[in-house]
Each structure stands twice: as C-alpha cells, then as structure tokens.
Design a protein around this nucleic acid. Structure first.
Lengths: 220, 220, 220, 220
DNA sequence: GATGAATGAGTGTTCATTCAT
DNA sequence: TATGAATGAACACTCATTCAT
C-alpha cells in the first residue's frame, strides 16, 4: 500500500512525466483539437482528451480552467495556425493574378488538409460565436490579410489585369466561400452525388475551377 | 394521487391533446428541427424536444424510434423543404441569365432565412454523413436540379449569353458555396470583422455580389 | 380519416375479433405463460404479452386486472396443468413399485417438457411465494397426490416390496427434487460439465437413475 | 450550492469514503449479490445496489462495466464461495460413508444458509446460462469436487461399504438435487403444505433423510 | 367491446468537475 | 506537480397503466 518514489525531479527517464508544463499544455491542446474536431463541443469528452494527451485530467483543468475555455484555446490555435501558414505564402512578391490564384489555392488546400479547422469553425457558429467573442487575439489576425488583398487588388488595377470597383472584403468572402464550402460539406455532397469528392483528382480540378471563378470575377 | 382535469371535452384547444397522431408527429419533427439546429445532434436534448412539441417523450420514441432516427427525419425534411421551395421558383420559364440569378439569389436567401438547414447539414458533416447515407430519399432530390441547371446552361449557350465548357455540377457547387458559406459562418465573420453581416442591407448587397460572380463566370 | 365499419357483430369472418372473451382470455394466458417463463415477472413485458396474444392491451387489463394478477393466473394454470396430467397416469391401478417408478418418471419428464413450469415456480420463490399465498386453489391440488403416495406406500409395505417408516411427504419431496433440479439447472450444469444434458439419451439415462434412487430408498 | 461537511478528516469512520478502491469494489459486490438475489437480474436496481454499497453509482460502472458484468461477477463469487467452503470440509480424511454424508449435509446446509446462491443460479438458468458461459473460472471449480467424489466412491467400494457401478457425476447430481430443491422451492412448498419448512427442526430432519437416501443408494 | 395514443415515474448509463492523497 | 477515486446532475430510453374515441 505504501508507495516509495525513487525518481529525482528533472530526471528525463522518469516513468511519470514531471515538470514539463509547456509540453503537457501543448499535448492537451493537440488532443483537444482532435477530439473537438471529431465530435464537436457537446460531443467531445474531457476524459478522452486527457487520455489522448496522456495526461491526468486534473492537469487539463489546472491549465485551461474548464472544457469551454479549452474549446476557445483550440479555436484560437486553429485560427492562428491558418493565418500563420497563409503568411508564409509570401504573396506580396507575386504578380497580382498569381497572388490571387495562390490565395485561392491556399484557402482551398488548407481546408482540404485541415478538416479540424472547418469543424471547429462550424461548431463555433453553432454557438453563435459565443466563445470567439471572448477572444482578443483572433480579430487582429485578419487585418494584415485584408491589407494584402487590398494591395494586390490595387496593384492589379494599376497594371490593368483587374477591374476596379471590387471591395476587398467582398473578394475575401468569395475566396473563403469557395475554399470552405466544398470541404465543409464534402460528406453530404459525396453521398448525394454518389462519388467521392475527396480524391486527389477531384480536389485538384475543383481548385483550378475556383481559381478560374475568382480570376474571371476580377478580370476587367 | 387524484388528478383534476379542468379542460372541457370537445374543445379543440385542450391543453392535453389526444388522438391526433399526425399532428403529434409533425409537432415532434418541428420541435426536433429547432432543437437540433440550435444545439447539434450531441447537444440536443430529447426532453427539450418533447417539451417543445408538447407531447410525452414516449410518443417521440414510438413514432421515430430513437434520437438518431429523429435526427435523420429532421435532416430529410430540411432537404425536402429546401428543394420544394426551389422548385416553386419556376426557373424554367425565365431567361437563362435571369434563371441563374434567381437560383443564386434563392440559395442565398434560403440559407439566410433557414439557419436550421445550414446547422443540420454542418452537423451531419461532422458525423461524416453517417445518417444521410441511410436515406433513400434525399439523393433523388438533386437529379431534377442538375437537369434544370444543364438546361439553363445549354439554352444560354445557344442564345450566346453563356460561354460553353461549364460543367453543371461545378456550377452548382459554386452557387451553393456562395449561398451557404456566408450564413454558415456569419457569427464568426461578424465577430472578426466587427460588424453585423446579418442586416438586410448587408445581405442584399452580398446577394447581388454573388449573382455578379456567377454571371461573370458564365459570361462568354 | 373517417372510418366506416360495415361488420355485423357475430359475423365470424370479422377482421377484428369480437365477442370471444373466453378465447381472448385463453390467448392472453398462453402468451403470458410464455413471456413470464422466458423472462420472469420483472423481465416480462405487458406489451409483448398483448402482441403475442394478438389482443389489445386494454383487454388484458380488463380481464386480469394488472400484471401481477396475470402472473398469479399463469402460475395457477401451470400447477393445475401439472397435477391434471399427473392424475391421468392412473397410478392407482399399477403395482406399488411400478406406480412409484411411474410417478418419478412423470415428474422428471414433465419438468423436461414443461420448462415454463420450472421457470414460473422459481420466479415465484424469488418473490417468497407472495402471489401463490393469495391463491385458494393450488393448495387443494396436493392433497390427492399425497393420498395416492400414502396408498402406494401402504400397499407396497403390505406386499413386502417397500420397507416401513417412510413418510409420504418426505418421499414426495425426494421425488420432486430429483425431477426438478436437473431441468431447473440444466443450463448452468451443461455449461459447467461441458456437455448438453438436454439430449434424449442424457435425459433417458438420468430418469432411470433417479427411479433407481427412489426404489433403493424404498426397498426393505 | 454550498456544501457543509461535518465529518472530521482522518477519522476512519467518515461517512464519505475515499481512496479505498478495493473496499469500494468489495462493497459493490456484496450489495449487488444481495440485490440480485432478492430481485433477480431484471428486477434488481442499479440505484439500489449503489445505495446499499454506499458508493456513487458511477464507481459501479467504473469497476464493473455494466449491470450484466456485475451480475456475472456476483455469480462467479457465489460459485467460488460455495466451493471454497466445501473444500474446507476436508472430506478426504473421513471414512467413505462419513465423507458422503458430510458432502450431502454440506450441500443441504449451504443452500439453507446461502439463499443468494440458489437465487443467482435460478436466475442464471432463466437466462440459459448466458453469462456463465462467458466465465472462464467457474468451470475449473468442479473438477476437484468430482475427483473427490470418485476417490470416495472407489475407497468405499474397496472397503465394501459401497456397491460398484455408480457414476460420480450421477451421484453428484443426486446430492445436489436433494440439497438444492428443498430450499429453492421452500416458499411455494411451505405455502402448499401449510407449514414452515424453514424451521431448524424441519431442516435437520430433512438433511438426515437425504443423507439416508444417498447412503441407501450407495449401499451394496 | 375494442383500439392505440398518451402518460409519469422510473431505468441503466454517462458526464464534467472536484478532492483526498 | 500529479493522481485517479469520487460525485451529483443529467442523459437517452422504457415501462405499466389509463383514457378518449
């Protein structure tokens, strides 16, 4: 019944992980993202998140407060990750048409390879953005993106490849729509149309179609 | 132990409704649609559905089997309602450009006025269309719609207002994307952009923008 | 919605059975016996009994009162049926040893072919004979049986084939034990011994063994 | 909302028991055995078991899985307890006749003092040994018992006190029948014969009668 | 007499969260 | 810091019984 613990704190070979709060936190967030994405906020199970993260449930509450706060943390991380990768595109160095095409393709492909992003956003909208409204960070992420689109639009107009009169927010919404919807509804659409929309060929053709939609919309 | 019933026999507005199975069934489906749309499949509460429908919970199980079967019934009804209203547009009698614009506007406005449709579809996709796959009816609803789009496209090509080479399914996906995404993500987008995208003015402007996107895409 | 009923009461070809209360009652009792025997009093479902009997549930309550009264009715019927068949043996005309052997074999075989008898008795004992105590009829059934055993014993003692000093109730309990236990516990015993005790060969050998036990017990 | 705890920390008789999983498990099993024995599997209430065990219902599911697994655990424990006590008899050191008499008496008395054993077995047979079939442990308990009976039989035959030609399994079934039936049906039998079969005098006389039955059966 | 829709009190089971160790 | 046993409130689902028609 008595348990003697011979491990020395700091020893990396400890069977029980100790004093690695940052790693524990990251593991929890990764596990939470997977669980929330797979089952939604209501369907996700705190026990399952703790098990996936291989941490004790108590830690989860210690680090994040409660399930809802953990949800917000996962949501913020999803937004940040998306925008971070988007920034890496370095669209500013491209030609206006190439830049717009790259933005469209990135949005489409990111949605394809990050279903958790779509799932978290859909569920957050189910809750009328209740949790996102508490976030101070996410709103700031969109300002640089809209600036970038504005710059591309202005540059394209000057060089005559884009028409004038297109609002950057309108354009962003159009790009986002085309990128998001296909994967948000891929399971119902595949079922209804009787074919798998997730194959590489389908996705690739669809991406180019949507690039075409955008460029025709912007054409003078 | 004694139960006093103050209702008058024969009065149709009795608080306790009896012997009206069809009405009970309809009430359950209406209540279920509202509850599922508001909270998702996992978040919805059977007790709450029964209370909203003003029926005994037992009836719900008698008529629909279980929560999941009720979910599928609500989902099927949502699809059918959408396609039924769409058919009432009578697009076939319009000019090709008017018809396409009407389809785009209808999709956008239906999503606007039927948030439950979006919510149910999103949640069904969270479950990878598990329940929709059991449905025999929904798949049949899309065939007439695609025929209609094909006819409009062909007619527009013959009269020179549309270019050739546009696939009907691609076009449908584009229309659906633009109609769906805006309202699917309206809460997060409103939060991020700091303004209410749900106002009449916003919606109206957005609808015309998306009609423009579609017509430019189809233009020769 | 309106339903016109053209059937005349008394017509035997009615789709809906009418005015056959005795048959309905018998059907209910048969169905109840099967359901109670299969699942016990607590596990049996009134809905299932009504469905098996092909009658409306309301009839069941009309004829029998409630589930517990129906249980007692089934229990009484089981006892009566057993003793009725036993009387048909006409043991009184046999020699003492043949008569005792016949009683033993009958008990064993009746338990074999009427598992519902065992099941109902076991369940009634689970309830500490709570329902049987309300019965006025069952107690009377045993008096003739004990008289019969007494007569056989006396006759056998006079003719020298049985020893004296054997109490009729003791003997009855011994016979009943050997007949009952094997089939009451046939599933657990078959599982533990790894062989099916329900085969015709097993049963037949066992019956003769138990006849032997009884006759050796009675032998001078 | 506020919760007042009047218990003194450190006192071992705390009303709220904590951190004693083994004791909790044992308490659950004890409570389950009592509840199952009193009401059968279908009639037993998980709530009641939790209340009797003075544990939270959740623990019951944590430790045993579900009601049916708990049933099997109680059933296995009942078998093991019976065979464990039987082994303590140390029959092997007795004379053959004394040994057989001791086995018969033990079986009879164990059934008398452990009505839960009979009740659990009866209910398991109602379910056609569905749960016992999943058990790997119970089958092993019977092998030593049959060996013991075989040894006693052989020894008694060599010393001339038993006849030959008696099968150990047949003998075991006879002993078990005589021990089991009387108590399995004690309530219905007491009701029918109009006297309490559970008195010390009745039981004692009955035990000796059944010992007599066995010894006469084995006599040369 | 006969129907089956309707009911309220429960039934087994699960959950997010807390607390003694 | 870390553990996992413990909790109470709910959850989906079921039941014997009643009642309007």
């Amino acid at each position: 019944m008595t348990r003697v613990n011979h491990t020395t704190p700091g020893k990396s070979s400890d069977r029980v992980r100790r004093r690695e709060p940052e790693r524990s936190k990251r593991d929890i967030l990764t596990a939470a993202t997977a669980e929330f994405a797979a089952k939604g906020l209501a369907g996700a199970r705190v026990d399952q998140i703790a098990k996936r993260a291989r941490i004790n449930k108590r830690m989860l509450y210690q680090y994040f407060g409660d399930k809802e706060a953990l949800w917000l943390a996962a949501l913020e991380a999803a937004y940040e990750n998306m925008r971070r990768e988007e920034r890496l595109l370095d669209v500013a160095t491209m030609s206006p048409r190439e830049g717009m095409a790259a933005l469209m393709r990135f949005n489409f492909e990111y949605c394809s390879s990050h279903p958790e992003f779509i799932s978290l956003l859909n569920n957050e909208n189910l809750h009328k953005a209740k949790y996102l409204k508490r976030s101070k960070r996410v709103r700031e992420l969109y300002s640089p993106l809209l600036s970038l689109i504005s710059d591309l639009l202005a540059q394209g107009q000057r060089s005559g490849v884009f028409r004038s009169g297109v609002d950057p927010v309108d354009l962003y919404l159009t790009i986002a729509s085309l990128g998001y919807f296909y994967f948000s509804n891929i399971h119902t659409l595949s079922t209804i149309f009787g074919r798998d929309l997730g194959t590489r060929a389908s996705r690739s053709a669809q991406a180019e179609l949507f690039v075409d939609v955008i460029l025709r919309f912007l054409a003078p």
